[in-house]
Structures are given as structure tokens and as C-alpha cells.
Amino acid sequence: MKNILFINTGGTISSSAEGHGLTPTQSAENIVAAVPELAGICQIAAMNLMSVDSTNIQPEEWVTIARTVHEQLPAYDGIVIAHGTDTMAYTASALSFMLGKLDKPVVITGSQVSVLAEYSDSRKNIKDAFRTASSELTGVFVVFNGKIINGARASKVKTKSYDAFESINHPYIGYLEDDDIIYSDIPHTRQSEGHVYNDGYSPDVFLIKLIPGMRPDIFDAVHKLGYRGIIVEGFGMGGVPFKEINLIDKIEELVQEGVSIVVTTQCLYEGGDLTIYEVGQRALEKGVIPCYDMTTEALTTKMMWVLGQTSDSAQVARMMATNYVDEITLPNK
């Protein structure tokens, strides 16, 4: 029987109603006790790391979680992390980059309804998470509503429904049906050459979602605030306007001053391609970094992580174009 560490960080799964609404109150031990079937799956050690609504989770908490996992994982066969759903995909992506190459599963789960509620998705999600953590998978995963998702491909797409998370632009790793894991037709384990544990990061990353009529001086304002990296969610394939309102020349100014700027699409599926339209090619010519089909969560945490390793713009571009944890589909060259 596998030996699994359960780390509680808070979130809806551990919440109860207080004066200002739902807030995390339940311990890791309480959550485990609510799912008696776990006794037949594995041996469990419980840890209460923090008790936080995931809206309040910041990059500092990513580091705390990553360091705890890195320190504890050698003593266990896998780890399950209970986390709030609102920023779960950000934490899963951040851990994917920080933890590096893994030879065991690290599984993040949560629920849309508290473990205290009679009709809650929490018990199924916890049970599924422990089954996944007891498997031979390696890497960071989100397990939710019977789906196993690459941690750097998960995104929350619904606010209330139990099927809140999807795998974006990447196959599901597998599905949990009753007591079985049904794997997809992709490798069950992955190797990440040269990618070792590194929890360095820079919080100086800003995301700008373009809208028609946006003034170019928004980039000056962001630059003055000291941001070193800017993510631009462009239109369609990643288009950036350059006629009546010219954002591309302003982007070029910042690139020349050493700010790393990536351009992505506002569309959830299928990714961007800056090589197709003039509005994309002009942006590429000014030195922006394409990011293809990464999720917003993976793109944000990856850029924070990359900027935590280097200030060299060329190296930032190379690292952003490196596939570390199956977070990006690079074009065939």
C-alpha cells in the first residue's frame, strides 16, 4: 500500500459559513475523516500547511507549497494537495515549473462545495486524487470531476458546476471511473531533461487584455510601475492594432528598453499564431515573444518563473520557447 502525504492549504473544500461568507476552517484530518474509503487506497499522513481562500493565494504561497513538496516528497510515494479552485490552475502551473523533474505524482484537487455539505463533489475528488497519487504517474496534475489534467494545462472554466476544470489544448492524462484509472493514449510518465527544482520567481508580470480603443499609453503606465514582463492578450491569432491606434510602436519602445513582452490570444482554445496576419507579423518584427497554445495560467506563472532566473531578454525569449512540462505545443521547424 502506497504512503501518501496530504497537504491542506484551504479553499472551498475546507470551508464553512462564517460572518463574511464561506471561509476555510476544516483541517486536513477532518477532510480525510470525511472520506472513509481512503483507508482502502493508501496510508495517509496529514499536514496543515495553511488555511487560505485561494483568491488570497499569492506567489509567496506557491514557493511555500513548492518547498514543502520538495522537502517531503522523498519520504512518500506521492502527495495530494487540497486547494481552492479559484487559483488552483495558477498554483498547479507554478508548481509544475518550480518542482522540475519528478519521479512521483503530485496531485492538486479541491471542490465546488464544502466537504461539510451532504451533496458535495469533495469526497469524489479527494478519493480520485489519492488514487492518482498512488499511481505510477510522474509530474504535477489537477484531478477534478473524474479527470486527470496536466498541471500546466488546467484551467477553471465554470464557476459553479462540478465539471469546473478542463484540459486546454492538450489531451486529458486520464479518467477515473469507479476504482480504475483509464489512461489516454499519451505517455503516462514524462521526463524533463535538465529541469531541476528552482522556486525563484519575479512577481513583476502584468497582463493586458486588448479591447478596441485601448490607448498606447497604457504600456507607459505599466512600465513606470516597474513591470519587467508584459503579457498581451491580442485578438484572434494574437493580433495587435497598428493603424488609427498604434500599439505596436509602443510595444517596440518597451522591448528596446528591456521589457519582455509576450503576445497570446484571447481565445481559450487552439492557440495563437503571429505569422499568419499582418497584425501578428508586425508584432513579431518588433521583438515580441509568441506563446502559441499556453493557457493564461501557465503563461503567467512561466513568465514569473523565467524572470526569476534571468534578466537577459534573449534568454527570457529562449526559455519561454522551451517546453518544460508539456505546457506548450511548439511548431514543427
Rank of each mutant, 00 (worst) to 15 (best):
N198F: 08
T138S: 15
I149W: 01
N145V: 01
N150R: 14
D163I: 08
S161D: 09
G174V: 06
D199E: 15
I149H: 03
K160V: 12
E193R: 13
G200M: 09
F141K: 06
Y162L: 07
I182T: 10
D180S: 13
I168E: 12
I181T: 05
N198P: 04
G200T: 13
S167C: 10
S192Y: 14
L176S: 00
K147Q: 15
E193Y: 12
N198R: 08
D180Y: 11
D163K: 09
Y162T: 07
N145P: 00
V157K: 08
D163P: 03
D163F: 05
I148G: 01
L176K: 01
Y183D: 10
S167E: 13
K158P: 00
Y172S: 04
G146C: 03
D178S: 14
N169S: 13
A154D: 04
H195K: 11
K147W: 02
I181S: 01
E177R: 09
Y197I: 08
E177T: 06
S167G: 09
N150W: 04
D199S: 15
R153C: 00
P187S: 14
Y172H: 13
G200C: 12
D163T: 06
D178G: 07
G146N: 04
G194V: 08
V196G: 00
Y172F: 15
D180W: 02
I186P: 01
I186R: 07
H170A: 11
A154I: 05
I149G: 04
G174S: 08
P187I: 05
G151H: 09
H195T: 03
N169I: 03
K158Q: 14
H195D: 10
I182F: 11
D179V: 01
D199G: 03
V157Q: 11
F165Y: 12
